[in-house]
């Protein structure tokens, strides 16, 4: 009785309820998108974008702009810089991304350290959904709704783009537009997720649900739904649990996601580690042969 009572305490607070609902929404949107991000191999890009928006957020906080506007601006700038440097040098893509995002991130941290009255460093790095302002809340909801609508209409085109861009061009689809669309959706959700889990952990929201879902199904449509469910569920529960962990919302959400991933990795019916071992020992006749990966 006492324990149940303790567990229900967070729901007595409006700010907690609000944080839980908003986190869930962000989790669902990021989950949908994570299906594309993991399959396209854009995990590192997600990480890069989430760090590159930091100076934008810091500046927007100083100038009184909406955070999303500043974040979006530097996100686009960083993407452009990465593309430019990649074309102009012979460096590998991952190195170029690393250089650009650390530079942007460092610039953001410098701005924050130079302006003590501006945005709080902790808010940007770890998020602060428990104290989200109404204006930011509105931004998050708008971003979420727009992203969901766009994905609902165009997910098949984006899937083809991720799977085989050459074929998309052969069919006369506007590949450049699709590429840009996916980038824009990603930057927008990064901005939203920043509020919930902070710059360092955004990439988890954009990768972990998709990775777990990929181990659970062989159909893209289903994978998208599974990822959205996992993302939303973990965000809901994690935000709720953070009440008991000193408000470390981002840490709770992401730890939960990683735990779910761990469970899926071990026990996924077809692509899990235990299933693979079972097959390797030949107890189950069906299924695909174990492949050796390098």
């Amino acid at each position: 009785m006492g324990m149940w009572h303790d567990l229900l305490v967070p729901l007595q607070y409006d700010y907690m309820v609000r944080a839980v609902v908003v986190s869930g929404l962000i989790g669902v949107v990021c989950g949908f998108l994570s299906a594309f991000v993991t399959l396209k191999g854009w995990s590192l890009l997600g990480d890069a974008l989430s760090h590159a928006v930091v100076p934008g957020v810091a500046l927007a906080g100083l100038l009184g702009w909406p955070l999303a506007a500043g974040a979006f601006l530097t996100g686009v700038l960083a993407t452009g810089a990465m593309a430019l440097i990649k074309v102009k040098s012979r460096l590998r893509e991952d190195a170029v991304m690393g250089i650009v995002f650390t530079t942007f991130f460092a610039a953001g941290l410098l701005i924050i350290s130079l302006t003590p009255g501006g945005v709080d460093r902790k808010t940007i790095i770890f998020g602060n959904i428990l104290a989200i302002a109404d204006r930011e809340l509105l931004q998050v909801v708008v971003i979420a709704v727009v992203t969901l609508v766009v994905l609902g209409c165009k997910w098949r085109d984006l899937m083809l783009f991720c799977f085989d861009a050459t074929q998309a061009r052969t069919l006369g689809l506007p590949v450049v537009v699709l590429h840009g669309l996916l980038l824009v959706l990603m930057s927008a959700t990064v901005v939203a997720a920043l509020q919930a889990v902070g710059a360092v952990l955004v990439v988890a929201m954009l990768v972990t649900p998709g990775a777990a879902a990929h181990l659970l199904t062989d159909r893209f449509g289903r994978m998208m739904w599974v990822a959205a469910g996992l993302g939303g569920g973990c965000a809901l529960v994690g935000a709720y649990a953070s009440y008991f962990f000193d408000g470390a919302t981002g840490g709770c959400i992401v730890t939960l996601q990683a735990l779910v991933f761990g469970v899926v990795f071990l026990w996924a019916p077809r692509h899990g580690w235990l299933a693979e071992r079972r097959r390797a020992r030949g107890r189950s006749g069906s299924g695909k042969a174990q492949e050796v990966r390098l």
């Binding site: 770890f126 360092v200 952990l201 990439v203 988890a204 990768v207 972990t208 470390a248 981002g250 840490g251 709770c252 959400i253 992401v254 730890t255 996601q257 990683a258 735990l259 991933f261 761990g262």
Partner: peptide
């Protein structure tokens, strides 16, 4: 990210 989150 899982480990960093756990750290937090």
């Amino acid at each position: 990210t899982g480990m960093f989150g756990l750290g937090l």
